[in-house]
């Protein structure tokens, strides 16, 4: 499995984003948030953003919190690190409905749609998704293989 086969990965907290080159790796924990991973496999680069809110137009503060500005910044940081825009591809994880239907105004679904829209806007292909449901996820990102491992409590880990 990806998470045990590699060394420690850098943790990306809520509203943060980072780009690393192989052999470094990234990880995060997601509930209703979205982990957006962008890869340039040839350059051995990967970026991960931990988005918590759909749109910067509905709030204010750090750009990494919002789907639209976080995806923009993640792409920019990938380019600055040497990625080729034409080779960029993405994977998405998260967007769960934590605490069941009653407690949240479907923030997870709104986050999912917002990230998809922004990746589409930048013409970045989404290679894989592990989204929705009612459980939180651990997400591990490997720039060398562009693999993303997803772990959910009580379920076998899967690689997308």
């Amino acid at each position: 499995m990806l998470s045990t086969a590699v060394g420690p990965a850098q943790f990306i907290g809520i509203g943060e984003l980072r780009v690393v080159r192989e052999p470094e790796r990234l990880r995060t924990v997601l509930g209703s948030c979205i982990g957006v991973a962008i890869f340039d496999r040839k350059a051995m680069l990967a970026g991960l953003s931990h988005v918590i809110l759909p749109s910067s137009k509905e709030g204010s503060g750090a750009r990494g919190k919002f789907a639209d500005t976080a995806v923009d910044d993640l792409i920019l940081q990938m380019m600055e690190a040497g990625a080729d825009r034409a080779r960029l591809c993405g994977k998405m994880v998260g967007g769960a409905r934590m605490f069941g239907a009653e407690s949240q105004s479907d923030l997870g679904s709104r986050n999912i749609e917002a990230v998809r829209d922004r990746l589409r806007h930048h013409r970045i292909a989404i290679l894989a998704e592990d989204l929705g449901g009612m459980k939180g996820r651990k997400m591990f990102v490997d720039p060398a293989t562009a693999a993303v491992e997803v772990q959910i409590i009580g379920e076998a880990p899967r690689v997308i």
Binding site: V29, I52, G59, F99
Partner: peptide, 18 residues
């Protein structure tokens, strides 16, 4: 669930403007 996962939706609504 995971500690960060249960907190996220609550922190999101509290931190929308800040």
């Amino acid at each position: 669930d995971l500690a960060c996962a249960v907190l996220a939706p609550i922190a999101a609504s509290a931190a929308n403007l800040s």
